[in-house]
């Protein structure tokens, strides 16, 4: 098996690490959330990849087709996408409120203001 045979899993790993790195390394709250979204998206691809059956078509019942891809991961990921959107929306709403009360969306400045307050 060559290294590229399962290239979609490599895509998953690269996306996952990219997203995770942005969450950790970026000081900007909006960028952190975007990193989080990329991180979650990589998991969606992981699920969808595992549902693929080689040579299978879309899971729609047809008389002359007997090989289908597994539809269950798609359904699961539909749920996970909704969860992901809700998380991003809530996160962005929080960032708006943070911007209103702190006047900044940079992690370091918020931390600074909190320390001054104490």
């Amino acid at each position: 098996m060559s290294w590229l045979a399962q290239y979609n899993y490599w895509v998953v790993i690269v996306l996952m690490m990219t997203g995770f790195y942005i969450v950790i390394a970026s000081g900007n709250l909006v960028k952190k959330l975007m990193g989080l979204t990329i991180f979650q998206t990589s998991v969606f691809i992981l699920y969808i990849s595992m549902g693929k059956v080689r040579g299978g078509t879309a899971p729609i019942l047809e008389p002359d087709i007997d090989l289908y891809s597994n539809p269950l991961p798609h359904v699961l990921i539909l749920t996970a996408i909704v969860v992901g959107i809700a998380t991003t929306a809530l996160g962005l709403a929080l960032v708006v409120r943070i911007k209103e009360s702190y006047g900044t969306v940079e992690e370091a400045e918020i931390q600074q203001k909190d320390n001054d307050q104490c």
Partner: peptide
């Protein structure tokens, strides 16, 4: 206002945790 910042930090950590759980469940399903 620190409640907002605490909530945001929890959101980031919590989502990473939940996504890890999602990956684990996915690999088991696989």
């Amino acid at each position: 206002r620190r409640a907002l910042w605490a909530s945001y930090q929890y959101l980031i950590m919590g989502t990473i945790g939940a996504t890890f759980i999602l990956i684990g469940i996915g690999l088991m399903y696989m």
